[in-house]
Amino acid sequence: MKALKKGLLASSLVMSLGGGLSASLPGALFAQPPAAPGAVKASYSLNSGQYVGTREYAFYGYVKVQATVQNGKLTDIVILEFPNHAGRSQYISSIALPYLVQEAVSAQSARVDLISGATLTSQAFEKSLDAALKKAGALSGSGA
């Protein structure tokens, strides 16, 4: 088992995501914009502008996002409203980090009974973004 000092942990955390794991939320809406502009299909037509999504209810609070579209591509998402149950004061740990074990995570698809994960507000996030993109004309029956 490997003991980690706090400084080591902090430095490992500021490393960027370039290590190979791709990060994206579920669903096509969260895919990275295509690298080559020519790859954008005609049916994927977004009007430039900023679009505020609906305020979506999650048990812990509300989620609302704003999507920015430029040249037919989703270029930015700003989260306007978040559930917040973190409290106000900053927890300051003055005690050295206890012994911890480190390992590289690897994706697997083993069969399990249930899955623990933070999906609740992600889904509200997705719904709000979906509504913002509808305004941008991304989905059938609207926009150009």
Partner: peptide, 11 residues
């Protein structure tokens, strides 16, 4: 019970 921890990079 076998409980999986969701991959935050690929849910």
């Amino acid at each position: 019970w076998e409980i999986g921890i969701r991959n935050p990079f690929d849910p």
